[in-house]
Amino acid sequence: MMEPGPVEPPTGSAVPALELRRLSVRYGSVHALSRVSATIPAGQITCVLGENGSGKSTLVAVLSGLRRHDEGQLLLSGEPVHFRSPQQARAAGIATVWQDLAVAPLLSIWRNFFLGAEPTRGIWPLRRLDVDRARELTVQAMARVGVTGLDPDQPASTLQAGARQSLAIARARHFGVRAVVVDEPAAPLTVGQQTLLLQTIVAARSQGLAVLLVTNNPRYAHLVGDRFLLLAHGQVAGKLTRDDVDASDLMRLMAGGEEFSALNSALTDLHSELGEG
């Protein structure tokens, strides 16, 4: 029997790779995230659990630079950062596997791999893509996630769903030097695809990266997670470690959370004063 088991965090690094301090994100008057505090240490897998609309996607957007937080702090190795674009987040070593994989179907595989961060050579008016290097790196990175015999010039639309997911994962592994954010793909995965995703997550942990796995499947989370962050209505509903819970506990918490929030929203609909504060 194989237990993934938590890996010792790298010694001497008391400062977590990523930290959220009372971080808030508003869309208009709606709080998508409200004063969320959490640490995402290096060498551990932090699972974010919550139902749809609990703020998981917003959290991913903030960490990957797509959305700026309105209040609070985002600390990268102890330094406050404010990513202005996903490019900056990727340059800082945080890469994301997006829920929809973020693959442009009409672009070739290597163009997809480096989209937004293409290697170039030459100086400005003649600065151009380093096509050979990009192709080579793409083939290497894809081989590392088990896709071999690839023609990097094929359009990504010729890839099957599994290979597309591999492309997204390989890209995140290539650019994620410090942290990898995995927003669990929305499409149903085959066992093979799930295996690949989990393998990647575990491999990233053993290389000392901070890993954030966003999912609404507690069983799945408990398989690999070291720490669990429960979100509900944009707020932290619970912080647990692997020692605190087993899979069924998580499941029950999740279910309880859903029941609770369903009840809560039903009541709020009836009595609007409950929703305030």
Partner: peptide, 15 residues
């Protein structure tokens, strides 16, 4: 190419 073919992916990747 990315802006036209896959705007959402382009945004997510910082294009």
């Amino acid at each position: 190419f990315a802006s036209g073919g896959a705007r959402r992916a382009a945004r997510q990747l910082g294009v």
